[in-house]
């Protein structure tokens, strides 16, 4: 923070806070902060880059827009919402942070998050690791074949695009891509309870890095592909497996 006193000058047009408030229900209560510090006291990101949630809200109130838009703290807050859960005035700090992220030029946002989002946009599986429909189908069937050799699991299923299944399951990409054997216990549970379930060839990936990237159109697309597939298959319950 600056050692020099901050001189507030009359602003032309809307402040960053004004713009964010227009997007949020009840303006995110961004004018309601009591400066009590409950948010900062319980935030694991307090102190990183010299910032904390209260400072973010105060900086927004003071119109320190340029500082807000460039602090890397936007990426150190995980938007976990514990601050707003604890806040007596329900100040929506995580949405303020989301909009700080969104104010970064897209190509300057953290490369790992950007790449994960772009990978998900490159295939209708929505996998942030870029796993394609045929990759997923191959690995699921390959692993399934092995499980069927186990007594009691000769008829175990892991269907993809089963029309009319009750449950639509998602699956984090790291399982099929990095540790496929971790899918087996889940399938065994579904088998033992006799659940009628399916994956979708499209939209099976559980992660949505476009949301973390603060790319509204992209994260909406990812979510829609997944939900539309579940609807198309006539599934009753979208079951989040993590």
């Amino acid at each position: 923070m600056a050692d020099e006193p901050l001189v507030l000058t009359k602003r032309e047009g809307k402040s960053f806070k004004d713009i964010v408030m227009e997007k949020l229900p009840d303006g995110g209560n961004l004018n309601a902060c009591l400066t009590c510090g409950t948010c900062a006291a319980g935030c694991p990101a307090t102190g990183l880059a010299g910032m904390d949630p209260r400072k973010v809200v105060r900086m927004a109130a003071l119109g320190m827009d340029e500082e807000l838009k460039k602090t890397p703290w936007a990426w150190f807050c995980s938007m976990c919402t514990r601050c707003v859960h604890a806040c007596p005035m329900n100040v929506n700090i995580p949405q303020l942070v989301y909009n700080m992220r969104a104010s970064w030029p897209r190509d300057q946002r953290p490369r790992g998050i950007l790449r994960s989002c772009d990978a998900a946009l490159s295939t209708d599986t929505c996998s942030a690791m870029g796993a394609r429909e045929e990759d997923f189908e191959f690995i699921v069937n390959d692993v399934l074949e092995g499980v069927r050799e186990q007594p009691g699991f000769e008829n175990i299923q892991a269907p993809i695009d089963k029309q009319g299944a009750y449950f639509f399951l998602n699956q984090n990409s790291r399982e099929p891509v990095n540790e496929p054997e971790e899918m087996i216990p889940l399938w065994k549970i579904m088998h033992l309870v006799g659940a009628d379930w399916t994956y979708g060839s499209k939209g099976w990936a559980a992660e949505n890095y476009c949301m973390f990237l603060a790319d509204d159109d992209a994260w909406k697309h990812i979510t829609e592909v997944s939900i539309r597939k579940a609807e198309e298959l006539g599934c009753k319950v979208f079951l989040n497996t993590e």
């Binding site: 976990c80 998050i113 890095y209 973390f212």
Partner: peptide, 10 residues
């Protein structure tokens, strides 16, 4: 690990 932190490089 949330909010993209795992992939952010920080």
């Amino acid at each position: 690990g949330g909010g993209g932190f795992l992939q952010s490089g920080y």
